[in-house]
Amino acid sequence: MRHWRLPRWAALVHRLSGVALAVFLPLHFWALGQALHGTKTLDAFLAWARHPLVKATEVALVLALAVHLTGGLRLLAVEFLAWQEDQARRIAWAGAAALAVAILFALSA
């Protein structure tokens, strides 16, 4: 890890956020599916979702989604636009933008 440079960390974070989102999606659909069993089950689930710990996980998920989005945009720029030497700065911007989205979500939640 001593020799890891920023682009490699960016790639790792991008993949891990992708895995986190892939794991989350079935849970998300399951939660939506609760509505099929009537309002009671869904309301019970929504009440549980208001728990601070669940809210914190939600912020983490939004961060994962934002990181995956901005990281993906950066990769598209790498692959389809002319090469830029300031990749470290671009990674920093992508990370900062994702963090800003997560903070805004946490403040509004």
């Binding site: 440079r5 682009p7 490699r8 790498v78 692959e79 090469w83």
Partner: peptide
């Protein structure tokens, strides 16, 4: 995957990425 390790280590300072 554009990890840029090649660029970081090239002794000639080339950028294969």
């Amino acid at each position: 995957h554009s990890h840029q390790n090649c660029q970081a280590h090239c002794p000639k300072g080339l950028n294969p990425t």
